[in-house]
Design a binder for these strands. Structure first.
Length: 161
DNA sequence: ATCTTAACTGTGT
DNA sequence: ACACAGTTAAGAT
């Protein structure tokens, strides 16, 4: 197999099958359930990574803290990595605004850029971009579809105005 | 309360 | 250099 051909696996959940794609380094991308998933073919990624991913995804969908995460292979710019790292520190059930994340990243005023970084997040759920709302607890946007953002927040027990 | 306009930053083209 | 994006803040209606 080619050096950079990725291995993928379906993650079965109550909300449909997510598609997890792995590199040699770890989980590289997680896609929401939808019809145009390519067939995963032989799932040759390490079993432990698949199990960890499956476990984490399903727990988060139930609003629980994942017990363990697979290694993440995050590819992005410096700013994006900073933002993504910050997002992972948001406790389950709590939220931040885009401007707050920007401030924590040391770039006050870059709220809009944070929105872009969130949209570029390759691994939703494990990197909780859904816990970032617009100012005043307004929902804001979501690349994967607002239904998911709402669903995830609801699972974490958040009441959305 | 809602609409319009303008600043703002990082990223892709 | 330019336009866009998961924003915000300020003004106008």
């Amino acid at each position: 197999m080619a050096p950079d051909s990725f291995r993928s696996a379906l993650i079965k959940t109550a909300w449909g099958d997510f598609l997890a794609t792995f590199s040699e380094k770890g989980l590289k991308e997680l896609r929401f359930p939808n019809s145009d998933h390519p067939r995963p073919g032989t799932t040759a990624a390490r079993d432990s990574w698949i199990m960890a991913t499956d476990n984490a995804v399903n727990l988060i969908l139930q609003g629980q803290e994942p017990s363990e995460l697979p290694p993440l292979d995050l590819a992005g710019t410096q700013f994006q990595q900073t933002v993504w790292r910050l997002l992972q520190k948001i406790p389950l059930g709590s939220t931040l605004s885009y401007s707050e994340v920007a401030a924590r990243a040391g770039k006050p005023g870059a709220a809009r850029a944070v929105g872009s970084a969130c949209g570029a997040n390759p691994i939703p759920l494990l990197i909780p971009c859904h816990r970032v709302l617009a100012r005043g607890s307004r929902l804001g946007g979501f690349s994967g579809g607002l239904e998911w953002k709402e669903r995830l927040l609801k699972a974490e027990g958040l009441s959305l105005v």
